[in-house]
């Protein structure tokens, strides 16, 4: 078992990393050269031609579908962690129950593929 005090070193590591990042970002901001810049220099890079519009525009819906599917499947994965750690104690019954659950998951997965939700053409 781990006690709350076991999490203290993680906070220490977080503070060290945070200090390093803040320090380096601050220092490079201070010691880097500051030249007078033109507006052209500060435009977004588009291979040297003039910028058309900006990047705040819609993108392919496919990425959204992937994100939704990720949420669904990742919850299942997290659900299986406690089972995997203890599954020897559950024996054959626990195994069969989990296979039923995984079968349902797999059905959903087959449905997703049949619906061509993951086709990228």
């Amino acid at each position: 078992m781990s006690a709350p005090v076991d999490y203290l070193p993680i906070i220490m590591q977080l503070l060290v990393a945070l200090g390093f990042v803040a320090l380096t970002m601050g220092i490079t901001h201070l010691i880097g050269p500051k030249r007078k810049t033109t507006d052209v220099k500060l435009t977004a890079f588009e291979s040297g031609i003039e910028v058309i519009g900006n990047a705040r525009q819609p993108f392919s819906i496919k990425y959204f579908v992937v994100a939704i599917l990720f949420v669904l499947f990742d919850v299942e994965v997290i659900f299986m962690y406690p089972w995997a750690v203890n599954f020897r104690e559950f024996g054959l019954n626990g195994l069969i129950e989990m296979f039923i659950f995984m079968g349902t998951l797999l059905l959903g997965f087959i449905y997703v593929i049949k619906k061509k939700a993951l086709e990228w053409d």
Partner: peptide, 22 residues
């Protein structure tokens, strides 16, 4: 890398632009 000029594009969201790499 420490001594290079840092450029933040005029169209960028300044705080998030710094927050990303940090």
């Amino acid at each position: 890398m420490f001594f290079k000029e840092e450029i933040i594009p005029s169209g960028a969201n300044k705080y998030l632009f710094i927050a990303g790499p940090s």
